[in-house]
Design a protein around this nucleic acid. Structure first.
Lengths: 218, 218
DNA sequence: ATACATTTTTAGACTTCTCTAAAAATCATT
DNA sequence: AATGATTTTTAGAGAAGTCTAAAAATGTAT
């Protein structure tokens, strides 16, 4: 059962949105993400539901079924493999890569993906640090690193903390950081080793004291 | 002005069909090539005409405009560059390559194509011997080789002959070979060096005496 | 040059994905 | 729990590309 370009995009974004919020993805959230209207989302979601790719109950949001999830993960796999190719072999810069990979990820040929994976040397992480699932959809164990030591430009997520005082915990909560929160490391000051991260479109400063106590995925 | 996947396919096939027959491409011929119905072709051709990509007069067939031709040639460029990549770097076999390249050719990013071209070392011919136009749409001068010496599997075309007797000329004519005729070299017998070529879906045998007197594009 | 066959076009309809506008359901606040 | 705000769904319609069936144009033979 082949999916259209559009259907694949819906599945991919449902996957990404439901990673954060364990609940069903709301119609509006999807509409915003896909730059379309809520009514279009409702229509498409019904179609995906008829194909058993999502679970959908009116007004309750959507989640992916097993099948839907497999497709979504496979698209992420393709996207990240192409990013590796574009950046490491074609010399694309970090930012330019995304739009092109966005198109390439919808090319459907198992043969192509497997050969590309081999050509690239079976990479486990893309150039932004995103983990690349294998052909069965299994993500690699993320390596853990202190935020303190992470390379600039990496997209990552909170894997753990090494300080458990109430003060620290509530500080993190206030910043919007908890286990699993995803963000991008933008800057690190040479002066005081404080870091700047991007989280949900917002830029946040973290002191070195905070950064050194957070484990993140590498 | 962006073209859809479908529009690009129409342009590409109009280009390929009009290379043979210097006249306008007929609706039916296009329909057959695109595995669609004549009525669909008429509709699409009107649309392309409105966009000034083809010249179209009712019942007179279509030809490409300058703009349409540029787009068609660019798609061929992309198709052949991807074929080089798939075959030389990913290790695809000669036949499997085509369908995948058919999808990749529609990815629109000048940046991507230029970088791919550079990565591949600015190849002038694809693995089947097809000439690859440069970024300005200019095809390379085809090298000439005797059919006698051409590699098996090459698609090529008649560039000239080295024997001009009436007997030879009328023999060629009967076989359907003339200047510019395109075909694929399929087999060469070890026994008598006769060759088997594929021309318009038909398989034809040529003796060594014939093959050695035909120049073809390499 | 007339009659028949073939090709091409038109007309109307269907699918996929989208939108706007309005109705229905849910949520939030007091 | 009632009101108002927000979210979501429905209804109807539009653009792109396709199809079938029928009409119009062209080509071909004698």
């Amino acid at each position: 059962m082949a999916q259209s370009f559009t259907e694949e995009n819906y599945l991919k974004h449902i996957y990404k949105l439901s990673k954060n919020s364990d609940k069903g993805v709301s119609t509006n959230a999807l509409a915003e993400r896909l730059e379309t209207k809520a009514s279009s989302v409702t229509d498409m979601v019904k179609k995906l539901s008829a194909k058993k790719l999502v679970n959908y109950q009116k007004y309750q949001g959507v989640t992916l079924t097993k099948k839907g999830q497999q497709i979504a993960v496979d698209i992420i796999r393709k996207h990240r493999l192409w990013e590796v190719f574009l950046q490491k072999h074609l010399g694309f810069g970090g930012e330019e890569v995304h739009d092109v990979a966005e198109e390439l990820e919808h090319i459907n040929s198992t043969e192509l993906v497997e050969r590309l994976d081999k050509f690239l040397g079976y990479p486990k992480y893309d150039p932004h640090g995103g983990p690349i699932p294998d052909s069965k959809g299994v993500f690699p164990e993320p390596k853990r690193v202190k935020l303190d030591e992470l390379e600039l430009g990496r997209s990552t997520k909170v894997m753990g903390i090494t300080e458990h005082s109430d003060a620290f915990l509530s500080h993190l909560k206030k910043l919007g950081l908890e286990l699993g929160t995803e963000f991008i490391l933008k800057e690190r000051s040479d002066f005081d080793r404080s870091v700047e991260i991007e989280l949900n479109e917002k830029t946040i400063q973290l002191s070195h004291d905070v950064a050194k106590n957070i484990f993140v995925a590498y």
